[in-house]
């Protein structure tokens, strides 16, 4: 009866439920693949593939689509850059002890978060109706700077403004949460070695706040990429608008919307990869082990690992048994 524990065989717990769940998922996936790629349907008396992949394929790289994609990426980049800059500024203002400064930041966030983005975009598009020309000068005094909004407020400029200003309101709250997440002891320690408020913020608080700021900012960037389609309403020639232009003439609505969707998916995937590496970068010093990259996780799941490590792992397991 008293056999040496190290000689006994370890029987892992069986999980039949997981096998059933996996089988169900596999069947559903097979149905989806069949419907997407192999099924047909009858349209105007003709049997056709359900999803017309050959049409999607033929439009995927056309100049109009690529030009739209370019504008979409540009507008996303400009809006996020402007939004982040505004957000940092507004977050710092919100945390100011001066009630006028913090109050005005609060009002900004209240207004631009509280009105629909689409309305704001249309508003900026028609801003030249309210202000045909725009000048900055001394109150009641001479103008120092003057532009004609009728000519400068193109759809691209209006959309950039609209998105950046709206995004600033959301980023302000994200950055503020990040700043508040940093322990106050950090500020005190920085001050105790003589750092000024600004230096403390730049060198100590913001880098640590980044860990909290980046995941929702990645989220915002992805949202922005897709929300940029709203700019089609103000006739900006971005991805959706250009695709609409095409299907307005040839009526291949669904395939062309799928072209646009696939491009959005591709760019989103690239952004997610970027976000992962950015998060990894700012995880320095916060976790004992940095999260594994996709490749190292793949390698681990395929059991490509040093033999010795594997052996010691098994040995540890046996010791526990």
């Amino acid at each position: 009866m008293s056999r040496d524990a190290s000689e006994m065989k370890v029987v892992p717990v069986r999980h039949p439920g997981r096998w059933v769940a996996s089988a169900v998922v596999l069947v559903l996936v097979a149905m989806l693949v069949h419907s997407l790629f192999f099924s047909t349907t009858v349209r105007s008396g003709q049997r056709q593939p359900r999803f017309q992949w050959h049409i999607i394929d033929s439009y995927f790289f056309t100049a109009t689509v690529l030009r739209g994609l370019e504008v979409t990426i540009e507008i996303t980049a400009i809006a996020m850059a402007g939004g982040i800059a505004l957000g940092v500024l507004l977050a710092i203002m919100r945390l100011s002890p001066n009630p006028i400064v913090s109050g005005s930041a609060w009002v900004y966030v209240w207004f631009f978060r509280g009105t629909p983005l689409l309305v704001q975009l249309i508003f900026w598009y028609y801003a030249a109706y309210l202000f045909p020309s725009f000048s900055i000068g001394l109150p009641f005094g001479p103008a120092l700077f003057h532009i004609n909004l009728n000519t400068t407020l193109t759809p691209f400029v209006a959309a950039s403004f609209g998105f950046a200003i709206n995004e600033g309101a959301y980023m302000a709250e994200i950055v503020r949460a990040g700043i508040l997440s940093v322990d106050e002891g950090q500020t005190e320690a920085a001050q105790s070695i003589g750092m000024s408020r600004l230096m403390t913020l730049r060198l100590i608080v913001l880098p640590q706040a980044m860990r909290v700021i980046i995941p929702p900012t990645g989220n915002e960037t992805i949202s922005m990429l897709k929300n940029s389609a709203l700019a089609s309403v103000v006739t900006l020639g971005e991805l959706l608008f250009n695709v609409q232009e095409i299907y307005a003439t040839n009526y291949k609505t669904i395939p062309l919307l799928m072209v646009a969707s696939l491009w959005y998916l591709i760019v989103t995937s690239v952004l997610m990869v970027g976000q992962f590496y950015l998060e990894r970068h700012y995880a320095r010093g916060s976790a004992r082990q940095r999260p594994p990259t996709f490749w190292s996780r793949l390698a681990r799941n395929l059991r490509i690992r040093p033999k010795s490590q594997n052996a010691s792992f098994l040995a540890a397991g046996r010791a526990h048994a």
């Binding site: 322990d183 070695i193 010093g285």
Partner: peptide, 15 residues
Amino acid sequence: ASIGMVFQHFNLFPN
């Protein structure tokens, strides 16, 4: 800057 301080909870900069 000319007065050093050491805290109970260290407050090292983790980054």
